[in-house]
Design a binder for these strands. Structure first.
Length: 912
RNA sequence: GGGCGGUUGGCUCAGCGGUAGAGCGUCCCCUUCACACGGGGAAGGUCACAGGUUCAAUCCCUGUACCGCCCACCA
């Protein structure tokens, strides 16, 4: 006996363990060895993270695909794992140390700190995996991987993969070390890539400074050129002033020099197209060491960059001694040494003002780069870093998408992808962090550099070069987290070893991820995947949107509008949450998650549960010998046909990654067809004392359809459906887990004749109910139904369904007459007419109004169609089937109008 | 500045050449024997605006206005 209500928590626990015990999600199950593989690699969540709504969406969609394909017989590998997430994790552990008042990372040193991070991973790393399991993710958990491999296993395959790619790319000249401007994050004290920089609008100022012009002898002429800047402190590193070659205001000054205030150095006024006459004063100071554009300008004019910052973004003039000697500096008096950059800014402005070189301060709002994690202002900083020359790799990735070897869904993301890859810049991959894959590079004391797969290799190289043993020290930096993530589709399968898994499951099939990491991750997997394996890492990329709160705002802790998926699972069940996300996952549109939707789909789960209970209470049990195509009862044939249609809709929607359409089709069938009509129409058969064979067939059909529904809904609601499958399967020969059962195949069960008959019945019941309600017939009242002018067929049809009609429409009797009784409400149903003689029971005035409204609508429709049919152009150019369709509609409407008019005439005559 | 979306009933969103749909909300009726996390009924939309293409436009094209996102930009 089924419980009275569906209890998600209990069912989820039970079903999860059944899946586990049954090894349901294991890839390469023996019976599927001949099946085509289907592979998805999970976007690895941060190992120390916890499940948020984005994960819930992402993994629900992946799980729907995985379960769908598994039921379609594929050998599914959904490869799980987690990411070490360099900065994020290091940050968390540092914060924990601080909170616990323990010594910080610099105090305890690298080895001890890294050990602490591993400890933290061990302590918290299982959480996200368990949370994914609670969501129902059907990953092959036995294959879980971590982007950094195993603690204390330097030879771990995941580490070897990263090292090998680095070493190979270096050997190919695609990885190199270079001194250039990087985005320096002063908070984390590391370089970050362009992608990790966010431009944030900031209200600031534009300071206008006068730079004095000097003559050939270096004497101030009294003339000045005014430059505008948002970063006064960079003045110290100026190497030129640039004006536009066509800017007539300055043409005469090009080639002359100015004396840089405060510093005293002479710098040239140069002509460069970079300078924009519209911006500022049209004259721009050039600081190559502290601005990406200026770096290029400086290079064009042979200016050596002057670095005025130390690595902690503190101002210093120490590097400028060579220049200072030639001028008349007073660096001590400037008192800028060791000042924080923003303090230095104030000080430079004050000094300029004191020297009457400050002309103007104007408010200025502009975009300022910030670190995406640190949220502090990024400082362009000249340092040595490792880069990947991604240009040639990007070319192959672009080609693969142009060729269609990898396709994006929705398709328009291809454009975004193209645009980024076509303008790609070198990728800075070194990070001054401790948590991550340490760069496999060793240096000798002379600065000689050895790139090798192991320290021993490096030592051998160095020893050979020097003709004897030398001391080496390893590069301290680690790699950008995304470097290892980029290898994920093949590193998780065992690469660089030639494993059977790599052979069987690579390239993978579908990648499902958020549109926000198309550059961070998707593009880089494409580039490195193609380069390393010569194959695209996946054939399809499905990009989903962000999950926002109900009002459309981005969820964030500071706004306090974060909806916790685990809380929703606790409250409504994982199935309800999953169904909600699927139903809302329309392509290309952000999801605004309203909790009442989750509640609605929880209700849906309960509805199905209760329909199953009803089946149980009415002896609807599965029959091993049941064959749907052999069903003879009209009602059953109709329901099977509807189910076939629903299966076809869900299948094609899922094949097209239209999750919302798939969910809607399943929902509609289960609730609006199966529960609302089929079960209701079947009640007289199931609960009456009629024909035993027909009752038996109906019982078997109900049971069969619940089974089909379980299958159809399983990708969306795996827990509930697996439970129903088990309950309904009791007493059946072992049929295994639903997760491994075949996807429904109901093709060719459509039956036009049964559709016509049951469709008529459904419409008639609806019409009667509507008329009753509109004319205020009390719900409990039983009223007669008169079928008007029925021919043999209609008479038979009505008689066959009399019991059902009586029950669903609350009739007192069903009879047949040639013409409608006086003062009755007439109903037009698919060409037939029925009447409810309600004289004295209801207000017929309301009925007159109702009919008049209907007549008006029919008249308008007919006029519209007539206009079309009367249009020669339409008749000449519209396709025949459209013309025919319009004719049929016109005729149908006309017939309807005629009947409405008759009914109306009868009503008004009598009441007059 | 470059690119990409969006604008459809009160709200959240589907649809996308030929009868405008759903969920929630609202209103009315119903504790009827699977389910009140329920059943039945109803109201509610000139599909942002202006042109164009077409026999036909919510749907295709162009433009406009708002809204959003991504990329670039510290004069």
């Amino acid at each position: 006996m089924m419980d009275k209500t569906f209890d998600p928590a209990a069912v989820e626990a039970r079903v999860s363990s059944a899946w586990e015990t049954g090894d349901a999600f294991k890839a390469g199950r023996p019976e599927r060895s001949g099946a085509e593989p289907f592979t998805i690699v999970i976007p690895p969540p941060n190992v120390t993270g916890s499940l948020h709504m984005g994960h819930a969406l992402n993994n629900t969609l992946q799980d729907i695909l995985a379960r769908f394909e598994r039921m379609r017989g594929r050998d599914v590998l959904w490869q799980p794992g987690t990411d070490h997430a360099g900065i994020a994790t290091q940050m968390v552990v540092e914060r924990r140390l601080a909170e616990a008042k323990q010594p910080g990372r610099r105090e305890i040193g690298r080895a001890a700190f890294v050990a602490k991070v591993w400890d933290w991973k061990a302590e918290s790393g299982g959480a996200i995996v368990n949370q994914l399991k609670r969501l129902g993710a059907s990953c092959d958990w036995s294959r879980e991987r971590f982007t950094m491999g195993l603690a204390g296993a330097p030879d771990d395959q995941m580490v070897r993969a990263v090292t090998k790619v680095f070493v190979d790319l270096h050997a190919q000249g695609l990885i190199y070390r270079d001194k250039r401007l990087v985005n320096w994050d002063p908070k984390f004290q590391t370089a970050i890539s362009d992608l990790e920089v966010l431009q944030i609008e900031v209200k600031g100022h534009l300071w206008h400074f006068d730079y004095p012009i000097v003559d050939a002898a270096g004497t101030e002429t009294g003339a000045i050129i005014t430059v505008a800047t948002t970063r006064p402190e960079t003045l110290l590193g100026d190497t030129a002033v640039a004006v536009h070659p066509d800017d007539e205001r300055y043409t005469a000054l090009v080639g002359s020099f100015v004396r840089l205030p405060l510093v005293g150095r002479l710098i040239p006024i140069v002509a460069d197209e970079y300078s924009d006459p519209e911006k500022g004063t049209g004259a721009v100071k050039i600081t190559p060491a502290h601005d990406f554009n200026d770096f290029e300008v400086g290079r064009r004019h042979g200016c050596t960059p002057i670095n005025i910052l130390d690595a902690e973004a503190r101002i210093t003039l120490d590097g400028n001694d060579a220049f200072l000697k030639d001028s008349t500096p007073e660096p001590e008096a400037l008192a800028l040494h060791g000042l924080d950059r923003f303090e230095a800014r104030k000080r430079v402005v004050a000094l300029m003002e004191a020297r009457e070189r400050l002309r103007l301060i104007e408010p200025n709002t502009h975009a300022v780069p910030h670190g995406d994690r640190s949220n502090v202002v990024i400082e362009p900083y000249l340092t040595d870093q490792w880069y990947v020359n991604v240009k040639p790799l990007a070319e192959r990735a672009l080609q693969a998408v142009r060729d269609g070897r990898t396709r994006f869904i929705p398709e328009n993301y291809e454009k975004t992808f193209f645009q980024w890859l076509e303008n790609i810049e070198p990728w800075c991959i070194s990070r001054q962090l401790w948590w991550g894959h340490q760069i496999p590079v060793w240096y000798d004391e002379a600065g000689g550099c050895f790139v090798a797969a192991s320290e021993a290799d490096a030592q051998a190289q160095a020893d050979a070069k020097h003709g004897g043993p030398v001391a080496l020290r390893r590069d301290e930096d680690v790699l950008d987290t995304w470097f290892s993530s980029a290898l994920w589709p093949f590193s998780t399968l065992g690469w660089p070893d030639a494993t059977p898994e790599l052979e069987r499951y690579y390239p993978t099939n579908t990648l499902v991820t958020g549109k926000d990491i198309i550059f961070f991750w998707v593009a880089r997997m494409m580039m490195l995947g193609l380069h390393v394996t010569d194959r695209v890492p996946f054939d399809t990329v499905y990009l989903h949107t962000l999950v926002r709160d109900a009002t459309g705002a981005k969820m964030s802790k500071s706004k306090g509008n974060v909806v916790d998926p685990l809380g929703l699972i606790d409250q409504y069940g994982a199935d309800a949450l999953r169904f909600t996300l699927a139903a809302m996952a329309a392509q290309g549109r952000d999801i605004k998650l309203a909790v009442n939707r989750v509640e609605g789909y929880r209700n849906f789960a309960t509805k199905l549960w209760n329909a199953s209970r009803f089946a149980e209470m009415n002896g609807c049990t599965l029959r091993a010998d049941y064959r749907p195509e052999a069903a003879t009862e009209t009602l059953n044939r109709w329901a099977l046909g509807e189910a076939a249609r629903a299966v076809a809709e869900v299948t094609s929607a899922l094949e097209a990654y239209r999750f919302n359409d798939a969910a809607a089709a399943a929902y509609r069938f289960v609730w609006n067809i199966f529960c609302d009509w089929y079960v209701e129409l079947a009640k007289p058969v199931l609960q009456g004392e009629g024909d035993a064979a027909s009752k038996a067939e109906t019982q078997a059909t109900v049971a069969f359809l619940i089974d089909q529904i379980a299958k159809l809904l399983h990708p969306f609601m795996p827990f509930l459906t697996e439970e129903l499958w088990a309950i309904k399967g009791e007493g059946m020969p072992d049929r295994g887990l639903l997760a491994l059962a075949p996807w429904p195949d109901l093709a060719r069960l459509n039956d036009a004749a049964s559709e016509a008959e049951v469709g008529w019945l459904v419409d008639l019941v609806s019409e009667i109910r509507s008329a009753r309600s509109e004319t205020s017939v009390p719900a409990a009242a039983q009223i007669p139904l008169v079928v008007i002018g029925a021919d043999e067929a209609l008479r038979g049809r009505a008689t066959r369904w009399s019991e059902t009609l009586t029950r669903l429409a609350r009739l007192s009797e069903l009879r047949f007459e040639a013409v409608a009784p006086k003062n009755s409400v007439q109903l037009l149903v698919r060409g037939s007419v029925a009447a409810l003689p309600l004289e004295g029971i209801v207000d017929l005035g309301a009925e007159v109004a109702r009919l008049e409204k209907e007549a008006a609508k029919a008249t308008a429709d007919i006029a519209k169609i007539e206009a079309k049919l009367g249009n020669a152009d339409f008749m000449a150019r519209a396709p025949d089937e459209i013309v025919e369709e319009q004719r049929e509609r016109r005729d149908a409407e006309a017939a309807r109008l005629e009947k409405i008019t008759e009914a109306l005439a009868r009503l008004t005559d009598q009441s007059a």
